[in-house]
Amino acid sequence: MIEVDHIARTYTRGDGTPVPALKDISFGIAKGEFVTIRGASGSGKSSLLNILGCLDTPTAGTYRLDGEDVSHHDDQRRSHVRNRKIGFVFQSFNLLPRTTAVENVEIPALYAGGHVDRGRALAILGRVGLGDRADHYVTELSGGEQQRVAIARALMNDPPLLLADEPTGNLDSAAGESVMALLTELHREGRTIVLVTHDEGVAAHAKREILIRDGLIASDRPQGRDAATARQSA
């Protein structure tokens, strides 16, 4: 699903000095995996997220998403890749205010061209447990509900990859748990999920954790029950 091969990302400061954010990152994620990318702020985690989300391109190396090399796509083509292949979930939900839940869910379909299928949007809302909230304005929903609307929106175009950036960062623990439970369920249904966080507790829900430090992979190991099984068998 994801093949990251010797990726580097170097920013250029105002005075022309290069600042390396990602030095040399390589990993692969198979279809159906649930992976967290963990790192402290300044570790290069966000840079990696931007590249994985096709918002940015690496300065070196290649990134293949769903078999397509997207490392050199221009803005237009990256927009299309984001639209069809990536479902974004943000820390602060990023729902459009004064807009109903179902209208938010429909947005990705709007930019996909073709028919906007309201029935499908309603079905997905039902799937995340908000079937009865479809016509509520997002400001009328709780934080946990808003994040579930955002997850429904991420699923609208049925993308192969779900990319969540600190999805529980703005939620209380109960709401955070329910969102994590939803993501775990989606994983069980076979979706590929990459979750970026600095929180070990959140990272524990995934089956594999990639730890980033100083623009390099510090560790890449199984997590949770899989990790326990791995340790047992060792």
Binding site: L55, D75, F88
Partner: peptide
């Protein structure tokens, strides 16, 4: 601006 960023992330092209 945030709305624009969100729409872009969800697949809106610059012309959109």
């Amino acid at each position: 601006t945030t709305e624009i960023g969100t729409r872009r992330a969800l697949g809106a092209t610059a012309p959109d």
